[in-house]
């Protein structure tokens, strides 16, 4: 049994290097144990755990090739926090050598599992693009570029994967996105990713107050659909959203607001309405201006 020890920060390269060596040495999946450094199983043995050296290639094994679709799938799956992802990907890689159409067999148990992990990673990355909230750093006055910092808590190792999106979008400002699964940053020159876990900073931004005002007023109390909101904006994200603590009161007050609207008798139109309609009449052309 070979033990392969990986960092597992969501980058495909380290897994790919190990998997390629194993494949070229002809080592079948059941002879490999994949472990994550500092992961759930790794902790128990602490520093004493060491990975096996990678085996030399077996000259009898033909050069490995994989379909492009597998690499795309693997790039997403490797970001998942499931410790079994390394083994799953290696099993797929191994089987792909004989079953070229494996990925199209969408009901295959390994393919189903990989697709499930990929979907979960995609969703988390999408939610990260949606729910990161930048706060402006006020110590940046006099600097040529404005500076922003965000704190986010992703479920999977997606900080590196999403960094390019934020760079392409927020190109003219310096930003840092700090998370328990690493930090990405952009300074106008370099896009960086540091896998070390960050700690939550204490930040205030006056613009949050305007955003909260908007959030409260774009809500229509006559259409309360709390389930629909929560399935798209699960509670696990709420603690870092400046608008989320308004939600309980908005929900609690909704019914009373609707009752009040219904109970209030129609009021008399304001004077300018009468002037407008009188003008319409005088012009003899209802409504034209």
């Amino acid at each position: 049994m070979l033990t392969i020890l990986l960092d597992g920060h969501g980058e495909l390269a380290e897994w790919r290097a190990a998997a390629r060596a194993l494949l070229l040495a002809g080592i079948p999946p059941e002879r490999v144990e994949w472990r994550q450094r500092g992961g759930a199983t790794g902790d128990l043995f602490g520093g004493q755990m060491e990975g096996s050296p990678l085996p030399p290639p077996d000259p009898q094994t033909p050069a490995a090739t994989v379909p492009r679709a597998f690499l795309e799938l693997a790039e997403a799956v490797i970001c998942h926090n499931d410790p079994r992802r390394f083994a799953l990907l290696y099993r797929l890689l191994w089987r792909l050598q004989g079953e070229r159409a494996l990925l199209e067999m969408r009901a295959d148990a390994d393919v189903v599992q990989a697709n499930r992990l990929e979907k979960s990673v995609r969703r988390d990355a999408h939610k990260m693009k949606a729910f990161v909230r930048f706060k402006e750093l006020s110590d940046g006055e006099g600097q040529p570029r404005r500076r922003f910092l965000a704190w986010f808590e992703p479920e999977h190792f997606i900080v590196g994967r999403t960094a390019g999106f934020f760079q392409r979008r927020f190109t003219d400002m310096d930003w840092i996105i700090a998370t328990p699964k690493g930090t990405s940053s952009w300074d106008g020159q370099h896009l960086r990713f540091d896998p070390a876990p960050a700690t939550k900073p204490d930040l205030r931004d006056a613009a949050d107050d305007l955003w909260r005002t908007y959030y409260a007023h774009i809500f229509n109390p006559a259409r309360l659909k709390v389930q629909a909101m929560q399935s798209e904006m699960p509670k696990k994200y709420w603690k870092n959203l400046p608008e989320a603590d308004l939600i309980p009161d908005l929900i609690a007050g909704a019914e009373a607001r609707v009752r009040e609207m219904a109970a209030r008798a129609a009021s008399d139109p304001p004077a300018f309405h009468h002037r407008l309609r009188a003008r319409d009449k005088a012009a003899g052309r209802e409504g034209e201006t």
Partner: peptide
């Protein structure tokens, strides 16, 4: 804005940045 060095992007599917309690 990668090339212009400015602000903003649109990348295919839209993004919902929040949901109100009306869903």
């Amino acid at each position: 804005s990668g090339r212009s060095g400015g602000l903003g992007s649109t990348e295919g599917s839209g993004i919902c940045h929040a949901y109100a309690p009306d869903g």
